[in-house]
């Protein structure tokens, strides 16, 4: 089981309050992603759950038991670190088995568990190697192997893919999702990459300056962002924000519309402008348009769109997919 509950969790280093007040329920078997810009407290929150940082106030429960004052090793959680944090002078075998050895398991049992983990992660051929003899992806796998042999109640991942190159990152992303499917264990995953968050999560927790801005499934966050911050953070390219008379006409302080919800039309359209830049990605073209009414907008056009910088263009937003926000940046529904 791996139900994790945070109750009014607060963390401050001296006068610097990192997390003012966070409450959250993570259900057994869920894949939860903490996402937010750097410095938003997502890693701190994870480390609080792990027990690597002490709570300033509040409580953390694992399966209903208050673990706030229990040392990390006894919380039954495993963590995968950003730098992998492998033990450099131990072989892969000993790296994976070290936690079990410290727990005092008999040697043959450790060997069996290590062998099983290694087989799951395709590491069997590398068991005798040292970490420095492995590639980035293999090191990542060893770090995961070290986590799974302990059969934890939950896995904690602290930006585990940020040291890998782009192609490998996509592969490892799939592998971690596969692992989650196979093990069915709760996973908490910290990332600053909203694409990782969208693709992997059952539920996403968006953090901003230590506050939980919104919790929801990827599509909930995409379709119904509660605030300007979430709206701007989820989705790529970023949502367009329009202020002034255009927003006022829709009875909002700020009007948000995603690039994919603005269509390029023939004739006059709703907004007129000139193309400033065009990014051709093959499947899509992203146009940066200076409009007369709404200022600079990003617009997604089909891949075969042939507009050139300087050309005049007419745009028509999908009115139903507009997001309205008040002066405080909260959504109006």
């Amino acid at each position: 089981m791996g139900n994790i509950t945070l109750k009014n969790v607060r963390k401050a280093f001296g006068d610097a309050v990192i997390i003012p007040d966070a409450s959250l329920d993570i259900r057994n078997g869920e894949f939860v992603v903490f996402v937010g810009p750097s410095g938003c407290g997502k890693s701190t929150l994870l480390r609080l759950i792990a027990g690597l940082e002490d709570l300033t106030s509040g409580q953390i429960f694992i399966d209903g038991k208050d673990v706030s004052d229990i040392p990390p090793a006894q919380r039954g959680l495993s963590m995968v670190f950003q730098s992998y944090a492998l033990y450099p002078h131990m072989s892969v075998r000993n790296n994976i088995g070290f936690g079990l050895k410290m727990a005092g398991l008999p040697k043959d049992e450790i060997d069996a568990k290590v062998a099983k983990a290694a087989a799951t992660l395709n590491l069997t051929d590398y068991l005798e190697r040292k970490p420095r003899q492995l590639s980035g992806g293999q090191r990542q796998r060893v770090a995961i192997g070290r986590a799974i042999v302990r059969q934890p109640k939950a896995f904690l991942f602290d930006e585990p893919l940020s040291n890998l190159d782009a192609a490998l990152r996509v592969n490892m992303r799939v592998e971690i999702m596969q692992l989650h499917q196979d093990l069915g264990t709760t996973m908490i995953y910290v990332t600053h990459d909203q694409v990782e968050a969208m693709t992997m999560a059952n539920r996403i927790v968006v953090l901003n300056k230590g506050n939980i801005e919104q919790v929801g499934s990827p599509l909930e966050l995409y379709n119904k962002p509660d605030s300007l911050f979430v709206a701007g953070f989820i989705g790529s390219p970023k949502m367009n924000f329009i202020t002034g008379p255009v927003a006022a006409a829709h009875k909002a302080a700020t009007l948000g519309i995603r690039p994919e919800h603005i269509n390029v039309v023939k004739g006059k359209g709703e907004w007129q402008g000139t193309i400033h830049f065009a990014e051709h990605l093959g499947a899509d073209s992203f146009l940066h348009v200076d409009t007369v009414q709404a200022g600079r907008l990003t617009v997604r056009a089909p891949g075969d769109f042939e507009g050139r910088p300087g050309e005049a263009i007419a745009l028509k937003p999908e009115t139903v997919r507009m997001h309205r926000f008040d002066e405080k940046g909260l959504a109006i529904r």
Partner: peptide, 23 residues
Amino acid sequence: MDEEQKEAAEMDGTPPLSYFRHM
């Protein structure tokens, strides 16, 4: 010494003497 390595050892439940010997 790598900070994260210390923390990994902490997660693995390494007692101080073993930490000294193995890390």
